[in-house]
Design a protein around this nucleic acid. Structure first.
Length: 236
DNA sequence: GCGACAG
DNA sequence: ATCTTGTCGC
């Protein structure tokens, strides 16, 4: 599964054409193996953007006796940044480093939660969808802000959600993952439906806005998250 | 033509 | 995304 450079270093027009082709291969019906492990993935940058830092956190999922998630592995993988950020083409900038991190994982998960959009994208190929296709694994996109789609106001209670739509299609959901806090944008990536995506996000929610897999990956990928963790650890 | 625009 | 302390609120 080595990623040839030509697959990622594309001119915008070619990247856009490729997205349209790949989107046709997405499966939006559930095709998920029994879930034993869930991974969270996020990207951060260092050296003023010169280095891309991919973080993957692997959690063990225990449904009984009480739903529980336990961290079993954490990977941080660094690579030189190869593309600038272009709205709509995020996956070409971040996936290469993400793949490097997944290759270092000793166990592959049955489900991946990605920081970013799934199909809630102008060409239905957000980073979660693109990664799901490449790894051939179920993926869910959980973004902290909107890239594409229209939506009505969401209720204030935790668990309330409204559809995120584009034309006549529902491409995701705007979910109030925590009472009175800005909602998150959930959209299926690959091999999963929106309903199941929402179920998993709710099941992985602690008392924070982001579900555990993405929250932990976020912390591992970001500078401030590392500093905060070290500070907390030093306080025992 | 004028905004909007994941991370 | 990143630069960054304290501070307001549940």
């Amino acid at each position: 599964m080595n990623a040839p450079l030509h697959e990622w270093n594309l001119l915008p027009k070619d990247a856009i054409a490729l997205q349209k082709q790949l989107a046709k291969q997405l499966e939006l019906a559930d095709r998920i193996d029994p879930v034993a492990h869930i991974a969270g993935m996020d990207i951060g940058f260092e050296d003023d953007g010169a280095t891309t830092r991919a973080a993957v956190v692997l959690l063990k999922w225990d449904p009984a006796p009480a739903p529980d998630l336990t961290v079993v592995e954490q990977i941080v993988h660094r690579e030189p940044t190869r593309m600038p950020y272009v709205p709509g083409l995020l996956s070409f900038r971040e996936i290469p480093a993400a793949l490097g991190a997944f290759e270092k994982l000793s166990i592959m998960p049955e489900l991946i939660m990605v920081d970013g959009q799934g199909i809630a994208h102008p060409r239905r190929l957000g980073i979660a969808a693109h990664l799901g296709l490449w790894l051939d694994l179920p993926t869910i996109g959980i973004a902290k802000s909107r890239l594409y789609g229209k939506y009505a106001e969401v209720g204030e209670a935790r668990g309330d959600w409204v559809p995120l739509r584009a034309g006549n299609d529902t491409i995701g959901a705007v979910l109030r993952s925590r009472a009175k806090v800005k909602p998150v944008f959930v959209s299926p990536g690959h091999r999963i439906s929106l309903e199941t995506s929402l179920d998993w996000v709710m099941r992985c929610l602690g008392r924070t806005k982001l579900p555990e897999p993405t929250r932990l990956a976020d912390r591992l990928a970001s500078r401030r998250g590392q500093r905060t963790k070290q500070l907390q650890d030093s306080l025992f």
